[in-house]
Nucleic acid binder design. Structure first.
Lengths: 412, 412
DNA sequence: CTTATATGTTCGGCAATGCAACAAATTGCC
DNA sequence: GGCAATTTGTTGCATTGCCGAACATATAAG
């Protein structure tokens, strides 16, 4: 059988777009990354397993593991694995404290911070609710710093902080973490990456990305999806956010606007959207239309979506109908995405994660309009990591730098 | 400045999905591919230019060029380049006969064959019209073989046939050229790659892909778009086909259905589509709705779209209005694609290429509903290579194997 | 206790790139 | 015409990194 093997990425100085050759050191970087990524995604493995998985020679793998050990990223342990005849192979395990990242999430109605070690170990995590509305960016930065401080203080002795990642509800230029627009926070043209770096006073790179894109990344890398390489993550907050992983790679478009599915057309006869156009998906399937369809919600004292959830749990018929109607529109929009991206999995996050049980059937109905073949390949799933998908994704984003080039990053 | 450098792909035996390490030979493959691809896309370059472009050492580049020369793929020439002080650097040029491919296109109302050398040199090309309708696959295969024979015979002495590529109006599994479905040709579940290989009796690999995907590839690689890495190609034939290049890579989805934009929803109040759903994009913006909107067309003796074109050229008001209405719907669909993919360029091919001048304004109007920012980055263009985009793309698909691994392929 | 088996370890070989020194070919200046 | 400055090709050696073979080690099975 023949499979395609894809080498990783290097950073090198040079002008953008130029075709670059590579030297021998690049081989090493790639092979270190291959081993480390396997451990990160699949957990511990014996040396002999790593040998067969990478296809490299025993002696090469031994050398690679030696280097990762020197970098403080892995350790070895005798006798962990089930063994047959022959000399037992030691189990190689990750040391989470060898590479820790700070993950940050700036969502519509909460901010969250977590410390995460390589392998996905979450040391600590805090999320605090915030009322919706526009926040002064500087206040938000200092709020985050205040949440982060105790978490960083609680990390084990001798840990190695390797980076920070942040998810934000807005359009982000990933190269430098510049936020073009975050309507739900009232932010425009903000050098968020730099601001976070300044405020956190950490001497590590800070990466920023869109929350739905990171939700997709989180689900892709840590959602227990096995070999899935094509997935869509749909997050309902105020609007509808959408992150796409195509063939194992996040889709951004030229400036990070890719996946703005909330403002695609599904109903020309629909209402006017806040974007100025008519009939956008999120005006039919977002939070606002859901609440509009539940008459009882305003009379309750609860936060709106909580009230809907509670009514649904009580089996309130009008509420269930409202959810179903919303779900049908959700499914209609998903059918478009299925036709366009032919994914293996569509993960529902945010609002849809909470209401999944009540939505599922109606979503399936709405999806009926998509082409039968791609629909049959696409599985609709509730988010496995729930509300934390963007936060986990932010950690993955920060860890990716290290995993791509362990020697360069861990050496700092 | 720091740029990302992406290494290419290798073929290696092993189980799919396994993380593979790479050895030294892989470096060479990658560097050969880098040099060859640069020449293929940008034409001749001096050795010193190649040195600075690749970032490799002078002596390494000399060695690489030596190997490509031995493979018969390039030659060197003194004095071609403008020179300043210092020893002049010889110009490295491609020898198109060093790697020739056969390109095939099976479209709705024509079939075409071309012989193309590396660097994009088209030796010969034939296209014959066919009435629409369902064709026996075997007849089509022998028709293609008959067209191909004289073209292959006319190739220069000592040429090296390196592969064949085929574009087909249907859903294709690219790994083995298996056609799931080609509704406009009446084909289902057809091992087209194998059939073509058998019929053509060429001892080279045959690659098959969807025509819109290859239209996108053709425009991307040979459409004179410079550094554009995000583009969408929209081909109007009977339906609407759509090929996407995202960050320089074709988007296929898990089984090749990605880009089936023709059956995305734009108008719930619209007509029933042949796919069974209502309000699909192609029922508003495809060829059929266009013809439906031109009352005069049936009374003319011409082939339908030719008649429309002729009426438009004559300035017939009802026809221009019909085209504009179609164009507006086309633009509405494009606005969805712009929100979802954030491309730099949207190339209009097929039907829309022919009617571009009459469509352009209305398309712009339809696009107004997309988000302002991604819209402002997306340029709508008429196809630069016109009706041949899928055919050129088929050649590029076949040449890609060689470019990715010059030593392995050219050695045969 | 022996044998078969699988894996770690060591060391020499090989492939590919980089580097430095030198040679060659051009421009420009006198 | 000659010479310096500049750029690039060429050559030989150093370095990096992977592979393979031989050997050592640790287990299971009989």
């Amino acid at each position: 059988m023949v499979v395609e093997v894809e080498l990783g990425r290097v950073k090198r100085s040079g002008r953008p777009g130029a075709a670059r050759g590579v030297a021998a050191e690049e081989l090493r970087r790639h092979n270190l990354a291959t081993v480390l990524e396997h451990l990160h995604l699949n957990g511990s493995a014996t040396r002999s397993q790593l040998t067969s998985i990478t296809g490299l020679n025993r002696s090469t793998v031994a050398d690679l593991i030696g280097q990762l050990t020197d970098l403080g990223l892995v350790g070895e342990e005798q006798g962990g694995a089930i063994s047959g005849p022959g000399r037992p192979s030691p189990v190689v395990y990750l040391k989470p404290e060898g590479a820790v990242v700070l993950a940050v999430e700036m969502s519509v109605d909460s901010i969250a911070v977590a410390t995460v070690g390589i392998g996905g170990h979450v040391y600590n995590q805090i999320r605090i609710a915030r009322p919706r509305g526009h926040f002064d960016p500087d206040t938000t930065m200092s709020d985050i710093a205040e949440l982060a401080r105790p978490l960083l203080g609680a990390l084990p002795q001798g840990h190695n902080l390797a980076g920070a990642g942040a998810a934000v509800v807005g359009i982000v230029r990933q190269s430098d973490g510049f936020v073009h627009l975050a309507p739900n926070l009232g932010w425009r043209e903000l050098p968020l990456g730099q601001m976070l770096a300044d405020e956190l006073e950490l001497d590590v790179p800070v990466r920023v990305a869109n929350d739905a894109d990171l939700g997709a990344l989180g689900e892709y890398r840590r959602g227990g999806l096995g070999g899935v390489r094509h997935l869509i993550y749909i997050s309902g907050e105020v609007g509808i956010g959408c992150g796409v992983i195509a063939n194992g790679r996040p889709l951004h478009g030229v400036a990070g606007y890719a996946g703005e599915a909330g403002h695609t057309l599904v109903n020309p006869d629909g209402l006017m959207c806040r974007c100025g156009a008519t009939g956008c998906w999120e005006t039919e399937a977002g939070e606002k239309p859901l609440l509009r369809r539940v008459p009882a919600v305003e009379s309750s004292g609860l936060e709106a979506v909580d009230a809907v959830t509670q009514l649904a749990e009580l089996g309130d018929k009008p509420t269930l109908r409202a959810i179903a109607e919303t779900g049908t529109w959700l499914g209609i929009g998903i059918s478009n995405l299925i036709n366009l991206f032919n994914p293996e999995v569509v993960v529902l996050g945010g609002l849809y994660h909470r209401l999944f049980d009540y939505l599922e059937e109606a979503v399936g109905k709405g999806m009926e309009r998509s082409l039968a073949a791609p629909r049959s390949m696409a599985q609709i799933r509730r988010s496995a990591i729930g509300a934390n998908a963007p936060l986990i994704g932010a950690a993955e984003l920060a860890l990716a730098d290290l995993i791509d080039n362990p020697a360069a990053v861990a050496a700092r």
